[in-house]
Design a protein around this nucleic acid. Sequence first.
DNA 1: CTGCATTCCGCAAACGATTGCGTAAATCGG
DNA 2: CCGATTTACGCAATCGTTTGCGGAATGCAG
Lengths: 354, 354
Amino acid sequence: MKRRVTLKDIAAEVGVHVSTVSRALDPVLSSTITPEVVSRIRATAEQLGYRPNRIAAGLRTNRTMTVGVMIPDITNVIFPPILRGIEGVLEPLGYATIIVNTDSEAERENRLLNVLRDRGVDGIVHAAVLLSDPCIAHVAEDGLPVITLNRRIENSRIPYIINDEEAGIRGMLQHLMDLGHRQIAHLAGPQELSTGQLRLAAFHKVAAELGLDRDELQIAEARRFDEAEGSHCAQQLLRGGRPFTAILGANDRLALGAIEGLRAHGISCPEDVSVTGFNDMCFLDLIRPRLTTVRIQKYDAGRTAAQLLLKLMASGGGDVPLETVLPVEIVIRESTARCPELDHRRRRGGLARI
Amino acid sequence: MKRRVTLKDIAAEVGVHVSTVSRALDPVLSSTITPEVVSRIRATAEQLGYRPNRIAAGLRTNRTMTVGVMIPDITNVIFPPILRGIEGVLEPLGYATIIVNTDSEAERENRLLNVLRDRGVDGIVHAAVLLSDPCIAHVAEDGLPVITLNRRIENSRIPYIINDEEAGIRGMLQHLMDLGHRQIAHLAGPQELSTGQLRLAAFHKVAAELGLDRDELQIAEARRFDEAEGSHCAQQLLRGGRPFTAILGANDRLALGAIEGLRAHGISCPEDVSVTGFNDMCFLDLIRPRLTTVRIQKYDAGRTAAQLLLKLMASGGGDVPLETVLPVEIVIRESTARCPELDHRRRRGGLARI
DNA sequence: CTGCATTCCGCAAACGATTGCGTAAATCGG
DNA sequence: CCGATTTACGCAATCGTTTGCGGAATGCAG
């Protein structure tokens, strides 16, 4: 390994002390050194190809310009744009990010948390969604700046950013009701994940507020947030024998799987059953029928998280709101249509009148 | 910030020197300390909640147990499984990865390379595909272990891993020819990216070897590897007025875009024009028609890269093959069908005979 | 001219872990 | 028992950068 150029080398070349070199190369402290000396030091640093050793500086300052990001799984297409949002804010400031995949396993999550802390990360954006999670709260209490994305940690003052899940569920339910649907099945996500739980709770709450008859609602709970589970739950609902004209999926993948599951039984979406998703993940516009869904912020969510973390790292917390709720957007596409039973009832109504 | 527990704290508690604590906690060096002292030290370390300071150790040893990974863009769905493959090998060994997105911009790539080096990464997996890239070669020459994925660096001894692009293109061309296609258009990727260039070169080479008439072939070059460009190029080909019955896309997204572009002109895939992709990215099985494509390794490519990098870091290169070619797989789905003109020619042939 | 304040640097300690070297004690072999 | 070898540690320097403090030089005001 070629020996790296150090401040000592520059000091020897210019004929000043290493502390002077350090100060001259610092944008703020360079004002305490005469401009002529600063110029000579900077020129020599560039000529010698000096690159700061963040390890050495980090040991002295306890700051590494590195941030940890914890997510469930990078192959989940929701997360890469979030990561780009985080990076988009931090990278121009010279930060690097260490990304770890927790796979929504508690033990792994705690282990990876230590991986990050051992490397002296300056802060953590915690976007993993497992509910039971004691360690991150302790770490934050110990003073490491932490922001959570998609979740609030109970009994903790960690600032958090969440989507307006309730508004999303409300928008979907209202849309389905406007189309005449009343017999609606909710494909809920795993209840040990925060989004699974939040969206199910919102479904119950909003359905009651909108005056939907509990007896006309059904819940199927998926074990994973993927297409296979979506298909499995849809078929489970069909086997249950209770009628439904719409499925409200807790995320897009459950919804897409449900459409496949219905199709396997000769049931067509949206002609026979309308289906809605949540998240508006990428590639939806290539998949038929185009999915009606709730669009959550991704890139901007990441940006927001990074901005809040920077504030937290700079100010120690005084200025950072505890809760940030990101608005969602209702996206109507092809997968929802007028309730077929409503049309049927109208004809019968008409017949009855005759 | 709560003060961290150091080796000095343990030494004071146990009544030994800090160097003894260091040796006792090292799996290899602990054999030079009596087992009873080792036990006491380990028990105290656990009781006090000691966590190693990788920054301090890294300054002394010049090793951080951190690896840099350079990719074009994490939102490109090909890369997350690659990253999981890399992580799958490194994480169990205690490594963390710093991922940077180069956006296929040379200046940005060089800047991010320094971000990684300043943090003392032990090695780099370089999976960015921009062709012109002088700095990574110099860094490798300076002694930093580097593996490239998807690309060979010219005039460099950096070990590289590539897909068998030629076998992929050959498989697609052969499949189209078996279906009777002769008038084939290639949607090439950007020529400043290695995959764009390799696949175009392979197209020319294999077409010649298979005896395809150059006059029946067409090339449209995309500026980006995305759906919009795929659609744009397909429409460009249509406007050109020269007939084609098949499109061989340089990647899946170009192919999907081409299908949309054809559809906008009332041309149906595969009934009127067959379309093939490359990569077999996720979600293809949800998109109709299901795309015929070349499946490249992703997770396993990442694993291979990480394994080679570990070897390189351990051995200094003696044992690591310069070139590793990963086999590809031909995946036939719905987007390719018998050439319509071939059927037409047969009927005419029959008429001619009468 | 003298005293005080400001500026510009050099000195040296600190950060936490590692490791080469040296010494004392224990063990082994003749 | 004695000399040689081995074992088990403690000492202190190292890694590269930062920063509090102090001294020397300079400038300003009375």
